[in-house]
Amino acid sequence: MPSETPQAEVGPTGCPHRSGPHSAKGSLEKGSPEDKEAKEPLWIRPDAPSRCTWQLGRPASESPHHHTAPAKSPKILPDILKKIGDTPMVRINKIGKKFGLKCELLAKCEFFNAGGSVKDRISLRMIEDAERDGTLKPGDTIIEPTSGNTGIGLALAAAVRGYRCIIVMPEKMSSEKVDVLRALGAEIVRTPTNARFDSPESHVGVAWRLKNEIPNSHILDQYRNASNPLAHYDTTADEILQQCDGKLDMLVASVGTGGTITGIARKLKEKCPGCRIIGVDPEGSILAEPEELNQTEQTTYEVEGIGYDFIPTVLDRTVVDKWFKSNDEEAFTFARMLIAQEGLLCGGSAGSTVAVAVKAAQELQEGQRCVVILPDSVRNYMTKFLSDRWMLQKGFLKEEDLTEKKPWWWHLRVQELGLSAPLTVLPTITCGHTIEILREKGFDQAPVVDEAGVILGMVTLGNMLSSLLAGKVQPSDQVGKVIYKQFKQIRLTDTLGRLSHILEMDHFALVV
């Protein structure tokens, strides 16, 4: 994948999101292997301009796509893939009243899908469409860049269908997702969380590099694949309309690839034109409109599966009536509230959605109805927002919020430890010299600072030695090549209790 991002070429006709291997024109390309080798690009942008032909009021008969309808489940399912879809609609009884809503608040519980998330729908649909058009064949390999849930859905379907599955996901995604993927037989590649989507090191860039190296491999490409919004247009939206008897006044959905909100909203605009569509985008993402909503100094966020630093091709923002931004604290607070007060075992993005819903639905009156999409299960986040310690460490809970008995030293300040200034190293000294210094002084790690004293990161003896043994660096290389740029900081005025929580999850903390 090139470091400079080429513009994806656009073909003359058809839909841009065809499933299957992508040609340089962004659509299915038939021909000899030699032709494909000559024409197939190194990668295709996940934010390529959409060429979708959908228009409100256009006859369904003019759609270029294969459409399906929700099917009634048999008493005995032939395999677990038949437990994807037909998820329950559940009334939220307490939270709406707590925040003064007059309307009825309903939750579409997508964590009841077989793999635990709304992404099971698009995973199965992308595979079925690729099999139907002859792209996927027995023994082929599926590769997908994902925040985890699409990966789980694909790995689940691949396990049943017999495909090899490789999932490329950023490091910030939970260990629970990784464990589930491994249990399903998927191979996992992790990428830096802070890598831009168009960087060769991003999950998108690495996935395309693997595709170019592995024979008979395919990126189904949830960011561009029409099967993504079509899955929701054909099934999720129809289920909502049936469950609500066609009567709903507002739908609120958090947005990642945009397939969920695009597919549902398009069908609702056709069948229930008075329904307002509300999009939820986390602070630090750029999906919301108008652009002024996205202006923030924050560039990272903890909530998973929603928000991006690019506009995915499948996201149709014209069908969203209003956007709201959400933050991590309210997302996790509301997710825990949904679990504790409503018994809905949902993930953090569901918290984002409901946090926005109780604001947006203030305009609705008694007798009206708001539906929220709860995308995934708490299963993926047992060591994250479900953990009091994690919430404390991230600053989303305060010590006084917890009532468990603490040891005698818990409320003492870090400054009472009488710490001395640490050994520091410059980023320009060599790895070999740094190892000598650390061994001589008896230290395992040291902060790396520039000549102005600005902290650049941390270097550890173990990481340097393993990097040297693996051949990633040489003793003569500058130590700046092996620094940890993500590390926890703590102030002298913070409590030892807070430091204790940090050290339970990290090997060190830097006192500043």
Rank of each mutant, 00 (worst) to 15 (best):
G134E: 06
M173N: 04
K83T: 10
L230N: 05
R91S: 08
L106D: 05
H203M: 07
D86M: 10
S63R: 03
L156P: 01
K269Y: 02
R164W: 06
L154T: 01
L77A: 07
L56K: 13
E171F: 02
P170C: 04
S199Y: 06
L101Q: 00
A38P: 10
R190I: 04
V180K: 02
G259M: 01
I261K: 03
P215T: 04
K177I: 00
P229Q: 01
I167R: 08
S23G: 04
E40M: 06
D120E: 09
E213W: 04
D234N: 11
V90A: 05
T141G: 12
Y223Q: 02
T53C: 07
P192Y: 06
E239G: 00
A130D: 08
P215K: 08
H65V: 03
E9Y: 05
G185F: 02
K108E: 06
R196H: 04
W43K: 04
D133A: 04
T257Y: 00
A237M: 02
P33N: 10
N216H: 11
P138H: 09
S19I: 09
I95A: 03
E144D: 06
W43N: 08
P70D: 11
S174F: 01
Q222W: 00
P88F: 04
L105M: 04
A69E: 12
G11Q: 03
W54T: 06
G263N: 01
P215Q: 08
K97E: 14
K102V: 05
A114Q: 11
E131L: 05
A24W: 05
S174Y: 01
P6K: 08
H203L: 05
E40W: 12
A69M: 09
S202L: 02
A183V: 03
K211L: 09
T150V: 02
N113H: 08
S23Y: 15
N228P: 02
A207W: 01
A159Q: 08
A69D: 10
I188P: 00
A158R: 02
G246N: 05
E37H: 07
E29C: 11
Y233E: 02
L28Q: 09
P215L: 03
C15P: 06
P145M: 00
E9D: 15
T235N: 12
K267Y: 05
R91Q: 07
S199H: 09
R132K: 11
S19Y: 09
L154Q: 01
A155D: 04
T236H: 04
G20C: 04
K119I: 02
W208R: 08
K97A: 08
A253E: 07
E171P: 07
V90K: 01
S199I: 06
E62H: 05
E239M: 00
P138K: 09
A107M: 02
T150K: 02
P88V: 05
I214S: 02
G100D: 15
G20E: 15
S217Y: 05
D249V: 04
E104L: 04
N113P: 01
D198T: 07
K177T: 01
P170G: 04
L56R: 15
F197K: 06
S19L: 05
F99D: 05
P78M: 03
E37L: 13
A186R: 02
W43R: 11
E110R: 03
K271V: 12
K267A: 15
S217H: 01
L184T: 07
K72C: 09
Y163M: 01
K119Q: 05
A155T: 10
T146P: 05
T150M: 01
N149D: 05
A186P: 01
C165M: 04
S175N: 12
R276F: 10
D221S: 01
L248W: 00
P138Q: 06
R45Q: 11
E128T: 08
A231V: 09
K83A: 10
I84K: 09
D133W: 14
A107S: 07
I142M: 08
L81N: 07
L101C: 01
I127V: 12
L136P: 01
K271I: 12
G246E: 04
N228M: 00
G116N: 13
A265K: 05
Y233L: 02
T141Q: 08
S227T: 11
R164L: 07
K177L: 02
P145F: 00
H218Q: 09
K30V: 10
K247N: 15
T146A: 04
Q7D: 10
